[in-house]
Design a protein around this nucleic acid. Structure first.
Lengths: 196, 196
DNA sequence: TAGCGAATAGTCGATATCGACTATCTTCGA
DNA sequence: TCGAAGATAGTCGATATCGACTATTCGCTA
């Protein structure tokens, strides 16, 4: 059957968490929320059920047993299988070794920038700058705080990465705003002429 | 009816291109391919038909006329409407003013890094470094070349942005690989102890 | 000139993401 | 002790993305 390979970041997280002990989907969701996984992985509680179904269908996890409390739907506990462990290692390795094309929305907006009148753009970029600056400050604070609480650095790498990229984008945005404000000709004539 | 707002980067591109003249979906696709829009916007030819349907349903574009050639399915030409132009400006402005949470797969992999044995990681990071270095070189070359051909800089901003973020990630990856190789203790004991 | 590969112009079904909605249970004040 | 707020534990349908597949037409050559 046309079963596509599960190509979903949440699936990896589920495999990783089931490495520790068998759990049912809702329990996984609670853990992810507690540990604030949502900050580094796009994650919607409702997606968990689909992901678990797929992983189970493909043999990466197995239903263990099910219990019910009151009149609630049955809750099934899942455990990772050997092939699940292998898959986790392989896919993690691949994600690290190979950069994948990302398409941030901001980049698509930049590619359409000519559609906006030039004089509208600097204020918009300033807003972005201050949002980015807030993000940078907040990540820095959080990093300092949790380090102070003794959290080991292996568990902070994803936040350091985000910090690095936020700072890079902030620097770039500043640069092009400065250009538009102080040396608009360097961007070419087309943009100005088009909006007359 | 529960019509969600079209929240799709390709939709913006379609609106922007229809600003210039009415076109049919396939024609738009050809243009996007010619101008290599796929480098900055995630874009699959088959998505165009869905996007055009939605934009038309929501009144941002209108069917103009349709022709057929041979036994091919009819081809309908679409034109942007007034509300389409307004939508384009508003959504572009919002995309620029507000950074949106991005969730690169690499970041999710970093958050699960403890699941890999520490000694496996540096080679993987080295592979990523050389891929990123190639990307950086290639973007630089392309930028130099097309500037030489007289392409105005407004049309290159998205590539400059990508270049900036690639370089930032490259720098970060180098840093943590160096750390893992030369000062693994700074990352904490857990990771080492866990893989015994 | 028969026919074969490539380009043309899409359709279809699976996967992935999203947010609204439902139904059950717990808690705590009136 | 009644009932309403909020937490619990999901379902459902729409949107978005993806890649395989189909069918027509064109260009070239054996």
């Amino acid at each position: 059957m046309g079963a596509m390979p599960v190509q979903n970041p949440l699936a990896l997280v589920v495999l990783a968490y089931l490495t520790q002990e068998p759990m049912h989907p809702y329990q996984i969701g609670q853990l992810l929320k507690e540990r604030n996984v949502g900050a580094s992985v796009k994650f919607r509680p409702s997606s968990l059920y689909m992901v678990v179904d797929q992983l189970s269908r493909d043999g990466y996890i197995e239903a263990r047993d099910s219990s019910r409390a009151g009149r609630r739907p049955e809750r099934t506990t899942y455990a990772i299988t050997g092939s699940g462990r292998a898959e986790l290692r392989e896919r993690l390795a691949a994600l690290i070794a190979t950069p994948d094309e990302e398409f941030p929305r901001f980049r698509s907006a930049l590619s359409l920038l000519v559609a906006l009148p030039p004089e509208d753009v600097p204020p918009l970029l300033r807003k972005r700058e201050s949002s980015l600056q807030e993000d940078v400050d907040e990540i820095r604070d959080r990093l300092a705080r949790v380090r102070g609480e003794g959290v080991e650095r292996v568990f902070l790498l994803e936040h350091e990465h985000r910090l690095a990229l936020c700072e890079a984008e902030l620097a770039y945005v500043r640069r092009i705003r400065d250009l538009i404000e102080n040396d608009p000709d360097s961007l070419g004539d087309f943009w100005r002429d088009f909006h007359r």
